[in-house]
Simulated scan of single mutants.
Amino acid sequence: MSDPRIAIVASTSEAAQRTAEVLRRCHGDVPATEADVIIALGGDGLMLRTLHRYMNLGKPVFGMNCGSVGFLMNSARDNGLLERLDRAEPVTIKPLHMQARTASGSLREARAINEVSLLRETRQTAKIRISVDGVVRLGELTADGVLVSTPAGSTSYNLSADGPILPLRAAIMALTPIAAFRPRRWRGAVLHNSAHVEFEILQATKRPVSAVADFTEVRDVRYVSVREDNAHALTLLFDPEHNLEERIVKEQFEP
């Protein structure tokens, strides 16, 4: 990437702002719409917000960890940026597309890079019917909720809910219950990324459920549809030594 035009996005942390100041002096800072590459300075939360904000631009994003969690970020250095960009290895990920119909009948749409989660809103467990590609696979799940995760998000909430870690290049997604009560032994499913997953909320008035796609929450849903969004492909850039796929494999062997 010869003399790229750079857009800098930084969190409010002192470390991120300090690094941004140095990078702007050395390389400038153009609007994201004019940039060849976006530099994201912060933690994984900042990376997710950056990917969502600029999803329609199709620009590669190189993250530096200036936050508390940096699974999707490279190490933070304020020198050698152009050399790092020249050596960077691209990873392409696709988000999930969520459609949620509410109790009022309105239809809400959102995209998720990590996961779409259905969560109980009250003290009572949720009751949810799950269909995959038009076939009812679970007539009634009684649980705190359920989620669909991308490979990129499989080490996040999905892993905390005892879901499987997914290889980044695998064309699959995880369907994982959250604190399931019935059926007790159901631990979820691994689905092809072409699968269309549908959730119907049972006893919705008594047991209200919200749907969350990364940062977007929709309350009092009655029906939720989730599938991979083939219209958007997001490119993350990583230092060769940071290899995201290797980090995901290593996560499976951590004590």
Rank of each mutant, 00 (worst) to 15 (best):
Y223N: 12
E115P: 09
S11P: 09
F238D: 00
F71Y: 14
M64V: 00
E254G: 14
D229M: 03
E251G: 00
F215L: 11
L72D: 02
E89Q: 14
R185T: 13
I165D: 03
L147P: 06
G139C: 08
T19K: 06
A180Q: 05
P183V: 07
R227C: 04
A180D: 03
A204P: 00
E200M: 04
A7E: 07
A35K: 03
R137E: 15
L107Q: 13
L118E: 05
N65G: 12
R207W: 07
R184V: 13
E34T: 02
T92V: 15
L236N: 06
G163D: 02
A35Y: 02
T216A: 14
V218H: 06
I39W: 02
R123E: 13
V224I: 01
R25F: 07
S131Y: 03
S106D: 14
R182T: 15
L119C: 11
H192F: 10
E83Y: 06
A76V: 09
V22Y: 02
T176C: 14
A213Y: 04
M47F: 12
M55Q: 15
E251T: 10
R227E: 04
R182P: 02
A15L: 15
P240Y: 10
V221K: 08
I178Q: 11
Y54Q: 02
A152G: 06
E121M: 15
V132H: 10
Q203F: 06
A170T: 06
K127N: 13
L118F: 04
G42S: 08
E200W: 00
L166R: 02
T19S: 15
T235Q: 09
P177S: 03
C66P: 01
D36L: 09
V212N: 10
M55N: 08
F253S: 12
I178L: 15
P208N: 08
E83I: 03
R108A: 10
M1T: 06
P208F: 00
V212H: 08
G70L: 10
A171M: 08
